[in-house]
Design a binder for these strands. Sequence first.
DNA 1: CTTAGCACTCTCGTGCGTCGAGTGCCATCC
DNA 2: GGATGGCACTCGACGCACGAGAGTGCTAAG
Lengths: 346, 346
Amino acid sequence: MSEVRRFEVLRAIVEDYVTTREPVGSRMLTERHRLGVSPATIRNDMAALEEAGYIAQPHTSAGRVPTDAGYRVFVDRLAEVRPLNVPQKRAIETFLSEAVDLDDVLTRAGRLIAQLTGQVAVVQYPSLRRSGLRHLELVPVAEGRLLVVVITDTGRVEQRFCELPLRPDGTDGGIVLDDITLGELRARFNAAAAGKRLRDLPTAFAGVVEAVGPELGGVAQAVADLVVDTLGEEGEERIVLAGTANLARSEATFEQGLSPVLEALEEQVVLLGLLTEMAGDGVGVRIGHENRLDGLTETSVVASGYGTDGDTVASLGSIGPTRMDYPGTIASVRAVARYLSRVLPN
Amino acid sequence: MSEVRRFEVLRAIVEDYVTTREPVGSRMLTERHRLGVSPATIRNDMAALEEAGYIAQPHTSAGRVPTDAGYRVFVDRLAEVRPLNVPQKRAIETFLSEAVDLDDVLTRAGRLIAQLTGQVAVVQYPSLRRSGLRHLELVPVAEGRLLVVVITDTGRVEQRFCELPLRPDGTDGGIVLDDITLGELRARFNAAAAGKRLRDLPTAFAGVVEAVGPELGGVAQAVADLVVDTLGEEGEERIVLAGTANLARSEATFEQGLSPVLEALEEQVVLLGLLTEMAGDGVGVRIGHENRLDGLTETSVVASGYGTDGDTVASLGSIGPTRMDYPGTIASVRAVARYLSRVLPN
DNA sequence: CTTAGCACTCTCGTGCGTCGAGTGCCATCC
DNA sequence: GGATGGCACTCGACGCACGAGAGTGCTAAG
């Protein structure tokens, strides 16, 4: 009983099951794949594979179905990389290059993945914590209030209102800053922050607070705190979803119904955790129960980091039933991630 | 055969069908509602209602089910307003007041509606076209490029990159503006735009372009065009969805499966059209086929405009199966719209 | 180690009869 | 004239038996 044929059988099972969506039996297998042996032999191999936990049968006298473990070895050892064809590549390139701003790029990337894979696409916004500060803008909106606009070097723009402290001299009313003062403050902050990473900001800003003197110190401190907060906040990370409708089309796939899946997808925080957790180098695959999330135990997640010059700033990926076309999905996700990385510094 | 009782029967049918999800027959009706007449009488009324097109039977010898028309008269004439209870109101108030910025408010509003109605929530961002300009910010990001940040009086912040024209003197390289010039430009634009509505911007900006002289005129023109474009663009309208998972829970409801529904929800442009179309005064209801959208013929949409001081800037609503709890949904949507209107000018 | 044969097990589709909910109609009653 | 009780009829849901088919495991032979 040769080792290699056994895995060949596993590959055949996975491939057939993925396309037919039905448990595959020994006869079918010999008919559709030139394995050169009889069904009986296959049966022996299947028994061994089942023993090893790679396949299972839904009930006696039904064909075999790959288990999560089976998909795992398929992905790790058996799947061949299947590069996208030229029109597909071109489609990605043109579609992404038409985007006008970051929101647009990411939305388009999502649609693209959803369409290429026929599954749900997930695209994470460039993580604020892994971004640098490109520019800081201060806009007076009302007495005692400032709108702080943070622009990162990944093109993300985040705004937040800042409540200014009361006047230090104790007089009534909120602080109102004139344009000159504001301009100065803005210039100082930007000079201090230029090109810095998040972790270096607190010290850089401390210098600013120091330098502006006691009169403006309170305001500067409030702004500095807000910016550091904003960039550091986990909750402000964002996600784009696309292709949810694709889930419903493969409806019969999910034993538990797709309500738990949809629920999981709405829990953006958890989804984010999953994505960042998976953001290693290259494309990562999580199969079925490898996802700890309850709703996603019947799905697989294929994800990849993206970012300029090897610097991963966020992740993107595709989520679909465990029975998915892994080579195709992996290829699509990787391709979009790469093109996105190239286009990113908008 | 009294007119009023017949409608009473219709109401009973709608209410029962909404709660039991099953076709309702004449016997059940007499048992659960004190109508004071026998099943046979009810049957006569039902025949009349069916004749009038308000109810239908899925097949002979099944109970009756309300038609779209039936729901319509239920909503228009029979439904009693059912105000939310105090804890619900309080929940809305506290949950919305905790929001930190516009994104947050709208996300929370969506979650709220989804949870209150057990259906899908749709929340439209304040329409740019119906907003005024609060502030304009110009940020230099690279040679020949400017980041233009538009802040509306509804709290929306939109950013767009602006390609500057080549230097008028024909020397090489893109235009680079120093801080002083930029400051001046910014001040002029803001002075011109202060408090203006979108439709007045082009003329206001024309003045600015005139005033800055030929040197900066090209730049000013580019910026002005971009701003007017951004605020006028239909595509830039945005929508938040929430509670998609709720759809799956009432899965059996949709004859066609929920894939068409999900598809319709992903078509944000179309959804927007629907919402703006419905934005009259008060809460509007679209039932089943009254929605032209293919995917939504089995659903009803309950929507309301919102906005400060009677000025509708956008809409929000709830989408669910035609067989929904109309009074409850209407109450929830209205309540959230009101609170949102109050909280809005953040 | 492979293969052919064989008995065995289950699922799935089909046909059939029963049950029951619900209807429509008609004669009757107030 | 509207309300009611009675009654025959319709039709889907449910349960059951049965056969077909697909697939397996095992064993003995190549």
